[in-house]
């Protein structure tokens, strides 16, 4: 089978709660159209959505890069924002710096990063305080029998 890479790039606006989730919705639609297993799609959509919501909630703006590689999915979310001073602390379940307005929307419970980790095979976070954060997620695709291309 010919190996190919499919890639998409999207922009995410900080504080644009009305459109928050739109990018992950597109990621999910692409995966559904390509025939990935629904349980697998849900896990990827959750990881993507959590990362997207982090940009909307905390950053000025950001981008989401989605690539379908031969055996892996790659999602890179990069933002211009306050950065994360202590990544280990941010990875702890329940730790959150989200303001009240975000908590009122049902987010900011300190589950975002742990939830991304749970739904991905590799999660790499690098951050510079005052500049921004890069989150890279790799998810191994299920065996091809579960795809109907």
């Amino acid at each position: 089978m010919e190996e190919r890479v499919l890639e998409w790039d999207y922009e995410i606006e900080g504080k644009d709660f009305r459109n928050a989730g739109k990018v992950s919705s597109k990621v999910k639609e692409i995966m559904k159209e390509l025939g990935f297993d629904p349980d697998f799609v849900r896990g990827v959509a959750i990881a993507s959505y959590e990362a997207e919501m982090n940009v909307v909630c905390h950053a000025e703006k950001g981008t989401l890069h989605f690539a379908i590689l031969p055996e892996t999915l790659r999602i890179v979310v990069q933002d211009k924002g306050p950065g994360i001073p202590d990544i280990d602390l941010a990875m702890q379940e329940g730790y959150s710096t989200a303001p009240l307005e975000i908590r009122e929307m049902g987010f900011g419970a300190g589950m975002g990063l742990p939830n991304m980790k749970k739904n991905t095979d590799e999660l790499d976070i690098s951050s510079t305080v005052g500049e921004g954060t890069v989150v890279e997620m790799l998810i191994r695709t299920p065996p091809s029998k579960e795809r109907s291309e």
Binding site: G21, K28, R42, M53, G106, F107
Partner: peptide, 8 residues
């Protein structure tokens, strides 16, 4: 966000 979450 309830709708978006439900969708995911």
């Amino acid at each position: 966000q309830v709708i978006r979450t439900a969708e995911m």
